[in-house]
């Protein structure tokens, strides 16, 4: 770590954004579970850390008028996965959050951090994609909202501009009540990134809506709309066809966690099982 590293802990969002703008080589710090190891290995070398955890607004989980929830950027994953409203309305988000790292790591790691880090294997990103989440962003030019579907560009890359501060992640009321499963393969049950992650969800109603999203099998977390539309037209009986569409949509690589062939094969198996369990 550089000896001249500076640390600031502003108490509101506007101050944090202004500080960041005045220090081009600064980085925002949330849980630090990704940033600190990246700094130690030299992959990132900010000269100033702007800690966002002293900003009260960022620690809130708020209920919105549409029946949705806003989850502040500094809320640790451990609080997301146990929050009664998250469990009642967005159980798949809780399920995905629980698979990140291990319990102590999730006392520090945040939803916003997991999103900004833009790992193709980010477990929570899969849930957020499937649930049509929106991220609220503050910058020197004001505040704006960005659909999560537009956020991920590639491994470690997002559509956020340098200096953009994600204040909260919003789950819309229209996605409340989506139920299903997140099936995740990894080499060990705790503390390992997903080799393959498959979320299949369904929201019951006169016209049930389906969600299919994948982790660790493409440069970004992936939502497979074609499979969802097929299931909406034909129901769970089309599990095999939906699985084929998901296999066709993924673009896995071979790495130490698994080969591309294995990942593709598992996407097919897990999507089929996920759909059948909701049939």
């Amino acid at each position: 770590m550089p000896v001249d590293l500076d640390y600031l802990a502003p108490s509101d969002v506007e101050d944090a954004v202004a500080l960041r703008a005045s220090r081009p080589s600064a980085a925002f710090l949330l849980g630090g579970t990704d940033l600190l190891p990246q700094m130690r290995s030299g992959r990132r070398s900010p000269e100033t850390l702007i800690d966002l955890k002293r900003i009260a607004e960022l620690h809130e989980i708020r209920e919105n008028a549409d029946g949705g929830l806003s989850i502040g950027a500094a809320v640790p994953l451990a609080d997301v996965e146990t929050h009664p409203l998250v469990l009642a309305r967005y159980p798949l988000l809780a399920e995905c959050a629980k698979t990140v790292g291990a319990w102590p790591l999730r006392q520090r790691a945040t939803l916003a951090g997991n999103v900004c880090n833009a790992s193709p294997a980010a477990d929570t990103a899969v849930a957020l994609l499937a649930l049509d989440a929106v991220v609220n962003v503050a910058s020197t030019t004001g505040r704006l909202a960005m659909a999560i579907s537009e956020l991920f560009l590639g491994p470690g890359q997002t559509a956020l501009m340098p200096g953009d501060l994600v204040t909260d992640v919003v789950l819309p009321g229209s996605a409340a009540g989506v139920r299903g499963s997140y099936q995740r393969l990894s080499r060990r049950k705790g503390m390992d990134l997903a080799t393959v992650g498959v979320l299949v969800g369904k929201r019951d109603g006169a016209r049930p809506s389906w969600r299919v999203a994948l982790a660790a099998v493409a440069p970004t977390p992936l939502r497979v709309r074609a499979a969802e539309e097929l299931l909406e037209a034909k129901g769970a009986a089309a599990a095999r066809e939906a699985a084929e569409l998901a296999v066709a949509a993924c673009r896995p690589i071979t790495d130490q966690r698994g080969s591309a062939e294995y990942r593709r094969e598992m996407v097919g198996v897990l999507v089929r099982r996920g759909v059948e369990s909701l049939g």
Binding site: Y7, L29, P37, L49, K53, P104, L105, Q107, R108
Partner: peptide, 26 residues
């Protein structure tokens, strides 16, 4: 020293945290 092993575990405000992933200033 990178949040993988848990040998550095302490309680911070009662919560278990990997103290190698927390700065003293935090």
């Amino acid at each position: 020293n990178e949040g993988e092993c848990g040998s550095c575990m302490v309680l911070l405000d009662g919560r278990p945290v990997n103290s190698c992933l927390v700065l003293a200033v935090e």
